[in-house]
Design a protein around this nucleic acid. Structure first.
Lengths: 332, 332
DNA sequence: CTGTTAGCGCTTTCAC
DNA sequence: GTGAAAGCGCTAACAG
């Protein structure tokens, strides 16, 4: 209601009797303008509540100071955390984030990429939907892919494989040799890396784990927990926290105790992992670091891709393999 | 590798020997251009891989076809679901979404609003951070506030109060009269509405519930579940699923059974509510409807604010009050 | 039906 | 140090 139309650089120029070029230069400390004039222009600018017109600047300079972020599904845990980290990093550089959700669909993903470019984003950060590839050669702006070390064109990722190794070593060190791996989706490179890491370690310890694939969801874990024969295993390693948590609930429902009867691990350290019962031993990614690096890459500060270490977070869902014994008053 | 610099409307005009105006008109079905020419221009446009320059169009028309979405904290459940719904609705209208996270901070929120406007968004949808107000008069673009019916300037919201009533009626109908309300943050209007709805119904049934305030988080619920004296209550209604879920885990750890010893309800129907054990009786909001209405409002299709009904989702966390073993028969 | 013309608000040579 | 002028690519009058 208050604003008529926003004031322009010209308005300032006219009221001060200078040229628009000078105003532009003064306001951005660019050209050689006398300190006194700069001050005067600054004052007048505030007085008028001047705000630079973004579209005009973008048209003239060819930069929009906006980046596109494409996630597979913002409704799924972890992606919001990623989005937040990226948004924070972007804000710090004065960049805004245009968000797109490919909704798990390769076609949507392509469409969004094109759309964002048409909208003039300066760069793109994409977390690819499972089983898709981002063909960077066909994209006219810098792209950072965040996925797994083996993904074509990956620029920033956690070391999922080493994370898998850490999990397996942890379980082995606790004496477990009858391992069930809830391996997640077969076509996910991230899941595959995690599982490969686990298996590597198992193999060199002469342990042969059993694999079960499923979606990377709570529900899928729950189904698995209800249906799987469990007596052959003493430990279970899930490729995703969501699977582990769904699994844990179902399994406890059946009367198995975690970790007494079955040790359980997740992967990602979702918010829920630490609060679920028992708190979940899992792998934590450094999302912030990944986000910052991806951004550094697309703004051209670096041209290397990086793989970031992960942390094993030991909580109460894993325990040393115990000789079968009695003794607990835990009614369930 | 392929793109040199994107081709412009002029390039098409020149190669075809027509004017840029005609090309512009043809491409957008705007003016009166002969079908034959339109076809020809279309073809040439594809051939050149023409993509309209967004900044130029925005500068010229004053519309960016972009809306800003401001959420309190995208890391918290429910907001991603909202964001997804809004993004979907926006995409359908050819609008892109610039996302901002106020990180629970009023200052950030103001900053983001200003920033988005400076970036030329056509409209703003804001889910205000707790305890803040959005002074719409000071904003030069249409704003839709999504919060609660009592929020100043609210445009679209779920009927939180009626949701609260539904919960209370459900619990009362099951015979519960010793009620604990986990009321959430004191300064949240949404929480307050939910709780008020519950209390209204209780009062008219001459039931006086006990209130406990806390953050709207899993952790806060967990703490409450560990610390509260519970024997005086037969049912507990939380103002948020997150609180309820955290509470449930802690309380079961103490040996209380849900729903046998204590009925429990949540609010929001997060993904986790249906998978947690036992699945949570809760209230589901129609996020899609809220999102669509907010968007309709900011694009000027409607000028009314709307409050949307919610659904009671009955699952296994609530049960009829079992006949007390100790003497307590206040027959009503 | 189609072309001409005039900018949107800004940055950027290039003169002075 | 400062100003004049030339557009960035597009759309919107208004002519023809």
């Amino acid at each position: 209601m208050t604003e008529a139309r926003p004031s322009s650089i010209r308005e300032i120029a006219v009221t001060l009797g200078v040229s628009t070029a000078t105003v532009s230069n003064a306001l951005r400390g660019k050209g050689r303008v006398s300190p006194a004039l700069i001050e005067q222009i600054r004052l007048e600018a505030d007085r008028l509540g001047y705000v630079p017109d973004h579209a005009a600047r973008a048209l003239r300079t060819g930069k929009s100071n906006t980046i596109g972020l494409l996630v597979p599904n913002i409704g799924q845990p972890l992606f919001p955390a990623f989005a937040q980290a990226i948004e924070r990093a972007a804000k710090q550089r004065g960049l805004a984030v245009l968000i797109g959700d490919s909704q798990g669909d390769a076609g949507q993903q392509d469409f969004e990429i094109r759309n964002m470019i048409a909208r003039g984003v300066d760069a793109l950060i994409v977390i690819p939907t499972r089983g898709t590839t981002v063909i960077q050669e066909s994209i006219s702006v810098p792209v950072a892919v965040i996925d797994s070390a083996v993904t074509a064109g990956n620029v920033a990722a956690s070391d999922h494989r080493e994370g898998g190794r850490k999990i397996a070593r942890h379980l082995l060190a606790l004496g477990h040799e009858k391992l069930l791996i809830l391996a997640g989706p077969e076509n996910s490179l991230v899941a595959r890396e995690r599982v490969e890491g686990m298996r590597e370690v198992c193999f060199s310890a002469n342990v042969e784990p059993t694999l079960k694939h499923s979606d990377a969801t709570f529900e899928a874990g729950n189904v698995l927990g209800r249906e799987l024969g469990l007596t052959r295993f003493t430990a279970c390693a899930a490729a995703y926290d969501a699977i582990a948590i769904g699994f844990a609930l179902a399994v406890r429902e059946r009367g198995f105790r975690i970790p007494e009867d079955l040790s359980l691990t997740g992967f990602d350290d979702l918010m829920w992992a630490q609060i679920v019962s028992p708190p979940l031993t899992t792998i934590r990614q450094d999302l912030e670091a990944v986000a910052v690096h991806a951004l550094s890459f697309v703004v051209g500060e670096t041209d290397t891709s990086r793989i970031f270490p992960t942390d094993l977070v030991v909580r109460q869902s894993t325990a040393r393999l115990s000789v079968p014994s009695r003794g607990d008053e835990n009614a369930e």
